[in-house]
Design a protein around this nucleic acid. Structure first.
Lengths: 190, 190
DNA sequence: TGTACATCAGTGAACGCGCGTTCACTGATGTAC
DNA sequence: TGTACATCAGTGAACGCGCGTTCACTGATGTAC
């Protein structure tokens, strides 16, 4: 009983923390992360401004947590696999579409902060994306295609561009972008 | 004499306007465009906050002017030409390095707002970048290489990624990135 | 040419407002014995 | 088991501060005649 209650208290805190991250994503999609204040985010999350400090020291710390807790998993989810080159490319396109459909605000944040004003954000995202390039190499190796590191990096860059373009399109446009991504990465294979 | 004086007055206004744009770039590099206020920009530009309104209705209007007046020319400057494929690729790498060296703040703004929170900024930049892709196709056609539109677009995307990585590197790292860009675009040619 | 008027970029004072932050407090839950 | 104490997420009041915006004004320059 004691153990159970402890878990519930921690879980409640975790719930509020996650709500702060989600609130930030919702607002950042509209006005940009750098323009957000702790009061605005707290209001959106449904807590008092002073409660914000129970979770983060400032917005910068929240941003880093957002990248670690939410962006990381989305980047990891882009790791396509398949039994053949063709199916692997198809899976890559599918994962791209899925990311945009599942969590457009998170994808927007990822793309914006990759080139944004905060060096710490850029560094963290660069590391995660380079992990994605490594995974992509491994996936291609699995279907006996030797992808040089630079080509894998280029494929990731094309994938990110596709994500950005898809965000501003409806379902029809997104399907086209998926095909273009597959075509481009295919060409990169040589 | 009357004509001359008229010009001087207009030129002075143009000078202040340009200084507002430059001040915005300096500040945006550090904190992000979306976080900037008209008072902060006016202070940096050396004018009273109320004078801001003599040039722009708000920061959004200033941002669009910034893209039109300053970002456009930089994107245009990336249009490499050369008498052979090899020299064309070399020129592309050189233009990339030149842009980063000449005006890093402007390049940072371009990259950030391409995926930023303001749809109007994204649209304007996308148009200008698609012009660059068209120019790139023409340049390759000139050396008898038929570059499909999607491949030209992919080359532009790789160029932008190189710009972003170069911004965070010193001279040595930038030289490496230049080589990587040339290698990647070369591979894209097939 | 001189004179009277128009234009307009730049300004300082003032406004109401939302911001980040500090503080002391509440009350539910956890811990010790 | 009950009791006394500790922990800690959430809170409302209050603070000083910088924000965007309005306003009436200045003074240099342009224009009309």
């Amino acid at each position: 009983m004691v153990l159970r209650a402890t878990l519930e208290k921690k879980e409640e805190k975790e719930r509020v923390r996650l709500e702060l991250l989600r609130a930030t994503l919702r607002l950042a999609a509209a006005h940009g992360f750098a323009s957000l204040g702790l009061r605005e985010v707290s209001r959106e999350a449904g807590i008092a401004p002073t409660s914000f400090y129970r979770h983060f020291a400032d917005m910068n710390e929240l941003g880093l947590a957002l990248i670690g807790d939410l962006v990381g998993p989305v980047i990891a989810s882009l790791r396509a696999t398949g039994p053949s080159t063709e199916q692997l490319l198809g899976a890559l396109g599918d994962e791209m579409l899925a990311a945009v459909a599942d969590d457009p605000e998170l994808v927007r944040f990822l793309l914006a902060e990759r080139s944004g004003a905060f060096p710490s954000f850029r560094t963290l995202l660069r590391e995660q994306l380079s992990g994605l390039a490594v995974a992509l190499r491994a996936a291609f190796k699995h279907v006996n295609v030797e992808l040089p590191p630079l080509a894998a990096h280029a494929a990731v860059v094309l994938l990110l561009d596709a994500l950005g373009n898809a965000l501003d399109q409806d379902a029809t446009g997104r399907a086209v972008i998926r095909e273009q991504l597959v075509w481009s990465v295919q060409r990169l294979l040589g």
